[in-house]
Amino acid sequence: MSIVVGYVPTAEGAAALDRAIIEAQRNQSRLVIINSSRGDALVDKRYVPAEDLAAVTERLEREGVEHLVLQPVRGHDAANEVLDAAEKYRADLIVIGLRKRTPVGKLIMGSTAQQILLEASCPVLAVKAGT
């Protein structure tokens, strides 16, 4: 049994992580944290630096959550990475953060959240920042 959370270093990402930790503690499940990058630009601010990731790991250990932190860089979209991980670790819950998007922005960029919601084979918990 495990919970997969898509983590990015933003308010939404932090909210998703917070919530995922609560869920993992409640269900005694393993938490799989995915922080992926397509790796197609020299700099990706959504890719968490090692020090910050260490802080996350430390926190998980403090809170006694069994965890696995993954940072795949394989040229795949974040949605695919989260879905892949959900399948591989037989997740019974996916937690994601949601952010506000303008309709135009969604049209051009597509929506990671939307793809996960539509394609996931397990329940998805969507969290907004500041909740």
């Binding site: 790796g39 700099v43 890719y47 630096p49 860089v73």
Partner: peptide, 8 residues
């Protein structure tokens, strides 16, 4: 191509 993103 460098695949790992750098930290700025």
């Amino acid at each position: 191509l460098r695949r790992t993103p750098l930290q700025i």
